[in-house]
Nucleic acid binder design. Structure first.
Lengths: 200, 200, 200, 200
DNA sequence: GATGAATGAGGGTTCATTCAT
DNA sequence: GATGAATGAACCCTCATTCAT
């Protein structure tokens, strides 16, 4: 996972990798502030590289968009492991769901691009699912095992539910989405108790 | 409502009105297929008018977007009356909710524009609500009166719920949204029966 | 002279003439404030007529420019007669030269157009000269006859001199041009006295 | 002075400088033939570059106009030195004044632009004066020192006088202006002789 | 490899001019 | 005749993309 791009890992990794990181970081920021249609120059400038460099690594804009998306998915999924290691299961689940909500919110602008029909995006939904579903499954299972949440929730349904709840988050500066997600999490816990009772 | 634009009804309406209709119809189509940022020329060409004509009536793109939106709201709201006249209350409600779902689905592209902060869009949410809320309220009341659906549903909540359900509809070519909405309608009917039992 | 345009003087003179006057007046103003390349619509709007009306009378922009120019020449030349009738010769001359200076100043924008090579402008210099030269000749002769100014000045030279002096008048908000013209007039008077002495 | 643009002299100057030169040369020509409002494309085409190149270097039209103006001022002022080196003082003065007259004549179209109030032009008058005044002062002093012209002429007055004389030069295809300037130069020489006599 | 200058298609907008009403 | 709606050519300007350095 740490070597996702540039698998063959040739020479000059220091320079090249630094640039690629800078570009992806800049693109993430610019996509968020100016949308995915922001001028290439804006991204190159913020990354401190020439446009030629950017084009060398990401010949099509969709390549860049996809790379940013994957990178963000990686980061968010990785955090599931970190949170699970550092917190009790219920707390880890809760923190990660909030983290995932943020991911969805900042990716709002990408949605339109993702559905543009560009083949470069074809694999992204699967990438999304294959990273997030196991991550959430693990967190859910751990929290269910300690009785902190109910155990009959499908990870995919939860991912999708939050995705939908977060949909209008651009409109909602008042944290409506986070409140709804919190409600949902409460629902998970509440269900756990009842399940426990039933089990007994 | 039938004379919303050009109220004073001046001279040469035939020509002008025909063009305006053509432009709005073309814009609706193009906005749907190519997004709200589609080239002005594309819309003008499809409407069979020169770009100048389009600019005369809609100096800013936002003016055109807003006009298309209002026109669609009008059409959808008007259909509530038609359906109510031609169908039994429960059926009318059901048909209109599907119609409204389609409205939301095709307006997906507008969402981003609407939240762009352009003052030309400031009045649209109110326009949306002031047309749809009464329309749905009437349908709901009629269907509740015949016992076909439960009577404790707020029109606004239902509008918003469907809006959220339909959110990812671009992603969903398999009619997922329509199935969810159907489920919701079933819930309305189901609630009606239970309410009836309670009442007894 | 009072029927310069529309010589045949047909019916409907009231309406038509009123419009033509309004157009010329508006054009004069707009040419001064926005330049001779100002949008036709601006002129039509200020005149309170449709663009079609303007085009009917002045098919080419140059026609309008020429008509405005002639009208202003007429007005300025006519004033020579009025001033001569109402003032002593020296005073009349002085007042008219100031009037002529204003004419030149406000026509600054036209200069470029006049030299554009458009055939519609070919007759304007002659029109200018054939109106202004006699007008000034008369004033000069009268003032010379009373000994108020020297008698050896060619009207054309004076017209041209003032024209040149007024050349930078756009740059000169401080009345530089008017001061120079005043100086020139003083020169005329001063010469007169010396001539008188010589004559004795 | 020889390195006015691109002082720091970065890399790739060959290409860029060549283009800039071509653009300025083309702009000078086009401004003269078609006026300062000529289409950008016309200039780009004549310079053999894309419009983008032109916009890169001169984002606003006023930038291009100002650059052309400065370049012409530079060229004309530089010629004062050349002429002084290659001719006797009186002849050098005479030749340069004719050269300056040409400069004024071809810049006629710029006058309106210069007084448009655009801040990009604010520094041009000072640039004009700070280049031409010393250049002419040197020529005048040298010619006065050899007794070829009178010594009581202010360079600025002479520059301005020729500027005014050349004002109608568009109208004057018959060399009227050059004749007037020649007359003026004669006056300078004539004054010199009389001054000499007075001195004796 | 990195850079950024150059290119030019593409899209917005204006306005002279025509012509149906 | 007067009107002003419609037209579309012509401009401006912005970037995506290429390519010489």
């Amino acid at each position: 996972m740490k070597d996702d791009e540039e698998q063959a890992g040739g020479r000059m990794r220091a320079d090249a990798r630094r640039n690629e990181d800078a570009v992806l970081e800049a693109a993430k920021t610019v996509f968020f502030t100016s949308g995915v249609d922001a001028p290439v120059r804006e991204i190159a400038a913020m990354a401190g590289v020439g446009v030629g460099t950017l084009y060398r690594r990401f010949p099509k804009r969709a390549d860049l968009v996809a790379a940013v998306f994957r990178r963000e998915v990686d980061a968010c999924a990785a955090e599931a492991r970190t949170l699970a290691a550092d917190n009790p299961p219920g707390r880890a689940l809760e923190l990660w769901l909030k983290r995932y909500t943020d991911f969805i919110a900042t990716k709002r602008g990408l949605a339109a691009a993702l559905h543009s029909g560009d083949p470069a995006f074809d694999t992204l939904p699967a990438y999304f699912q294959s990273n997030f579903e196991p991550a959430l499954a693990t967190l859910l299972a751990a929290a269910a095992a300690t009785g902190e949440v109910r155990g009959d929730i499908e990870p995919y349904d939860l991912l999708r539910a939050i995705g939908n709840l977060a949909v209008g988050s651009g409109v909602d500066p008042a944290g409506h989405t986070q409140r709804m997600v919190a409600l949902l999490i409460d629902g998970l816990k509440c269900g756990a108790r009842r399940q426990g009772e039933d089990a007994v």
